[in-house]
């Protein structure tokens, strides 16, 4: 018989703070896509090419998630608790990778190159969603920050600045309404 006390089970730790940051970032990303569709012509043009209906789920194993749905020509952020049957799911393999992705320690391109994620569904459709997420990040952040998130930062224009203000306004208003 082994001494059970000498070899105790070790329960996994938690990443509450990092998951909270990831959840907050996913809110801005999700609301950004919803608002961006109404505000930004680049996002609108991309999403118009998505199938209708179409549901995209961004998830993290043992971490937060968020869903976006296009239905009847409308784009809606479904929040982080919606139970959906996604057409395409992009799943991050560990909460640590999701945190790095959300705070700009790892770009989307690196997340793909380093196999930090996997996709359930049509890979080509995933690329179309990634382009929209990249555009939202380009609107959310000024160029010197956005370059940590995305591979190709659009050059500054007054349109981007205007859309950035509108996007933040919509995200904050959305948070207020949800609460």
């Amino acid at each position: 018989m082994i001494e059970r006390d000498r070899y105790p089970d070790i329960e996994p730790g938690t990443k509450r703070a990092k998951n909270w940051v990831t959840g907050l970032s996913l809110y801005f990303l999700g609301m950004g896509i919803q608002a961006g569709y109404a505000i930004d012509p680049v996002i609108k043009q991309e999403i118009d090419d998505w199938p209708d209906p179409f549901t995209f789920l961004f998830s993290v194993i043992n971490g937060p998630r968020m869903a976006i749905q296009k239905k009847d020509g409308l784009v809606r952020y479904l929040g982080q608790k919606a139970e959906v049957r996604a057409d395409v799911e992009m799943c991050i393999k560990n909460p640590e990778f999701a945190f790095m992705l959300m705070v700009g320690q790892m770009s989307t391109q690196d997340a793909v190159a380093h196999n930090r994620q996997f996709v359930k569904g049509d890979l080509s459709q995933t690329l179309a969603v990634i382009r929209v997420m990249s555009r939202v990040q380009a609107l959310l952040f000024p160029g010197f920050i956005a370059k940590n998130y995305i591979n190709r930062v659009p050059s500054f224009s007054w349109l981007i600045l205007r859309n950035r203000i509108l996007l933040y306004g919509n995200c904050l208003l959305g948070a207020f309404q949800r609460n």
Binding site: Q109, V112, A113, L123, S124, Q125, T126, L127, A128, I130, N151, R152
Partner: peptide, 15 residues
């Protein structure tokens, strides 16, 4: 081509 999975691994984002 811009929706092909291979483009995700190109060193430069091709639009």
């Amino acid at each position: 081509a811009i929706n092909d999975g291979a483009i995700a691994f190109n060193p430069k984002a091709m639009d």
